[in-house]
Design a protein around this nucleic acid. Structure first.
Lengths: 343, 343
DNA sequence: TTGAAAGCGCTAACAT
DNA sequence: ATGTTAGCGCTTTCAA
């Protein structure tokens, strides 16, 4: 790979403004020690010359690191690409680079990616994938991130992680409750859940909400069939096959994300089981295609783009002693995939 | 933003390996001037120590720039997120950062983004969005990129651009032909096209293929209704409304990308016009949800992830005098949205 | 409040 | 083939 092009340097700006290099630097970084008068003049000159700081030099010199590492399970999963969109927006506004990497839903691989980001000297790490119910790797990850933070790095996560860092918390439990309550209020009593791997906190939390909806009506949660498979479309397919085989009386399937719901719908379509006439189906996330499936999918909307924005904004705030939390809301979006049970 | 953490430096590796800094550097960058014996020992030591080069220092020192700028119309559009996935894979393999930015399908805004990437000193720029039939901005963009390249920067584009740089060329014309031929062979004679903005070369090329399919059967291409709207789902909706209003005899709609096809299907569903019984619909791209729409969408598959990989690989090759081109293939994927016309 | 100068960690001339 | 050293452009002590 080549060298980046040579350009205007800060010395050139300093010279044009008739100040020293140090003063120019202070003016542009917003550090104090410069009269506001001089500072604004320098900024003026810099802008008129079209000066853009060299992020490599700045970072090397010990200034702010100008890149943020974003860890997603997979970028070409709509849930994550929407989050990435939000992160990229904010980064763009602040002139930061975003380095995206995949975790593949594997805590060990994720830890390696995080180590790599740190080694690469990113200044901020955003972990957008779900947390894991795996104390061992969570502990290693936490140790790594704590060391990173003690050296000045910033971290924010999306989802419930046991990492002791700033977090954006999607409304998973409440969303799960809303989904269960919706189906119960339609009259369904034979529910089944197509759940992702139990090792993901996202799955656990959404599940908890579903169970609470049953209890709130005095129903026995232990009678609810829950099939744990991959948290993907393919997992949705397999879960559905199993549900149909082991629980043929089921009238509604709750998929714990939209990808799984797509798998559910696809299997039902293949078997010509009409939705919602013979089977109601709900998803979770409201990825943009959810409205275009046929039937269009009833689901819980999470503000993914905003979650991405919030996470980066949180990470860029001055650090606080205690980890901060921002909860998102959720919206139940009722579409055509749910209706009263056939009777 | 904080400083990145302090870590192992190349001197430490050099010391541990008992060689000089320069030798260590040469060993790790693969430069020659070191005996293969020493070089491999240094690499060994570096690996065992967990050394990772500081990209900021390396870039500043005039070595390879370690970041690639990726310009997409929008990351949370599945077409682009799949391409981004490919670029990220390759970048990950080579230890490069990927800086993604949005162009929003606006040539002027795109030019600004490119300028910004250059100012940020990326070493490689990948433009993944369609080219524009707009000589003015294409010329400005070309000038900018030429200057960038003359300073050592590398560029590759995906799609037909008039930029004189290495390019990955999606099989747009042939794909358009395949789509037209498929419908014609089913017996359709009343086609209509929901096309994106005529300003995009992607639209022009796909359209050309469709027209050729008509001519190949001796039909008159000028009688084909073509509605140009946004190259999005929303555009597909509006195009469909217009087609139904002005050309009610239409039996098949060709949408020039899957996003538009989703809009088409959605309007038809709303009007209870059955697909494919009363209307056949085809899309283009084969984004991953295409198979999950109902009816599942007949479309032309483009290898988006590979296109992303190829583009970055192309850009990372040693520069050549003439611009290189890599054509992709395409596959017609026939699903349930097409059938013979109602008679 | 401002300026001069010492690095940050690395690569690439320039020696040897 | 290997080592020595001068920067890359910036931030940040340290002096004034």
């Amino acid at each position: 790979m080549p060298k980046p092009g040579s350009r205007l340097r800060l010395v050139d700006v300093a010279e044009a403004a008739g100040v020293s290099l140090a003063t120019a630097s202070r003016s542009l970084t917003g550090r104090d020690g410069v009269s506001e008068e001089v500072a604004s003049r320098v900024r003026q000159v810099a802008a008129s010359l079209g000066y853009v700081v060299n992020p490599y030099a700045r970072t090397l010199a010990g200034g702010a690191s100008s890149s943020v590492g974003l860890v997603v399970h997979q970028v070409d999963d709509p849930y994550f690409s929407e989050i990435a969109g939000g992160v990229i927006q904010v980064a763009g506004e602040r002139g930061l680079m975003v380095q995206i990497c995949h975790s593949g839903r594997d805590p060990d691989y994720e830890l390696r990616q995080i180590r790599h980001l740190i080694a690469q000297r990113v200044g901020v790490i955003i972990i957008a994938g779900s947390g894991y119910d795996d104390p061992r790797t969570e502990a290693s990850t936490k140790a790594e991130l704590t060391a990173f933070q003690s050296l000045g790095g910033r971290v924010a996560v999306i989802g419930r992680h046991a990492l002791g860092v700033d977090a954006v918390l999607p409304d998973n439990e409440a969303g799960g409750f809303a989904l269960g309550a919706h189906l119960l209020s339609l009259g369904h009593r034979r529910l089944a859940v197509a759940a992702g791997t139990g090792a993901l906190t996202t799955v656990t939390d959404r599940m908890a909400g579903v169970l609470r909806s049953l209890r709130s009506l005095g129903l026995d949660p232990s009678s609810l069939p829950v099939v744990h498979t991959d948290f993907t479309r393919e997992g949705g397919c397999r879960a559905t096959e199993q549900i149909l085989r082991d629980h043929p009386e089921t009238t509604a399937i709750i998929a714990l994300n939209d990808a799984m719901a797509m798998g559910v719908l696809s299997v039902l379509r293949g078997l010509k089981i009409s939705v919602p006439k013979k089977m109601s189906v709900v998803g979770f996330d409201d990825v943009s295609v959810a409205a275009d499936l046929a039937p269009s999918l009833t689901t819980v909307r999470l503000p993914m783009t905003d979650m991405g924005r919030m996470a980066l904004e949180l990470a860029l705030k001055p650090p606080s002693t205690r980890a901060r939390r921002r909860s998102t809301g959720h919206t139940l979006v009722v579409r055509d995939s749910t209706g009263p049970p056939r009777r």
